[in-house]
C-alpha cells in the first residue's frame, strides 16, 4: 500500500538499483537514470540509493556533486547549453547568450519558475569549427545566431523537431 509520492519513488529507485544487482560500481549509471527520470537526484533518492548499495549517503552526494550532468535540484524540462569554446567567435556568442537570457527572463545557471527551461554554460562540445553552438537536451545546433533564439524556444514548447524529447539528454 503506497502512502506517498516519496514512497513510490523510493520503490522505483530500489527496483532500479536491483536491476543493477545492487553493485556499487553501477552507481553512476543508476544516478544517470534517476536524473533522466526525475530531472534531478533528490536528497531522498540519494539516501535510497546509498541504502540499497550499502554505501554512505555522503559518498553518493559526493559523486553527484562532481559531475556536471547530475544535479540535486530539478533542472528544467529543456536544458539549454551554450558552449564557451575559445575557438568560437566571442562577439556572436555573447549576443546569443544575451538573447537567451532576454527571452527566458533568467540568467545562466538558473531555471525558469515554471520548471521548463534551464540555461547553462558548457565547455567545448566538439563543434569548434561550427560555433556558436547551442545544445538543447543534448541536441546540437551549430552556427547558432541570436535571431534563431525565438524559433528555438517556440520549437521546445510546440514539440517541434529542433529539439529532442524532454527528459532525454
Amino acid at each position: 500500500m503506497l502512502t506517498t509520492e516519496r514512497d513510490r519513488i523510493g520503490l522505483e529507485i530500489e527496483k532500479l538499483v536491483r536491476s543493477y544487482h545492487n553493485d556499487c560500481g553501477a552507481l553512476i549509471a543508476i544516478l544517470q537514470e534517476v536524473q533522466r527520470r526525475y530531472r534531478h537526484v533528490s536528497q531522498y533518492a540519494m539516501q535510497v540509493i546509498a541504502d540499497a548499495l550499502d554505501v554512505h549517503p555522503a559518498q553518493v552526494f559526493s559523486v553527484v556533486s562532481y559531475y556536471r550532468f547530475l544535479s540535486t535540484t530539478p533542472r528544467g524540462r529543456f536544458v539549454i547549453q551554450l558552449s564557451d569554446c575559445i575557438a568560437h567567435d566571442a562577439v556572436e556568442r555573447a549576443a546569443v547568450a544575451r538573447q537567451l537570457e532576454n527571452d527566458l527572463g533568467i540568467r545562466f545557471g538558473e531555471t525558469t519558475v515554471d520548471g521548463l527551461f534551464s540555461l547553462e554554460h558548457t565547455g567545448c562540445i566538439g563543434m569548434c569549427d561550427q560555433g556558436p553552438v547551442v545544445s538543447v537536451n543534448g541536441r546540437i545546433h551549430t552556427q547558432f545566431t541570436a535571431d534563431r533564439v525565438g524559433a528555438l524556444l517556440r520549437d521546445c514548447l510546440g514539440g517541434g523537431d529542433m529539439v529532442a524529447a524532454p527528459g532525454r539528454d
Binding site: 536528497q43 540519494m46 539516501q47 554505501v55 554512505h56 549517503p57 555522503a58 559518498q59 552526494f61 559526493s62 556533486s65 562532481y66
Partner: peptide
C-alpha cells in the same frame, strides 16, 4: 562516512551529506 569531498575544481570542499 560523514565527510566526503564535495564539488570539484576551485569549488571543491569537504562536506557532509
Amino acid at each position: 562516512g560523514a565527510f566526503e569531498p564535495v564539488g570539484k575544481g576551485d569549488d571543491i570542499t569537504v562536506g557532509t551529506f
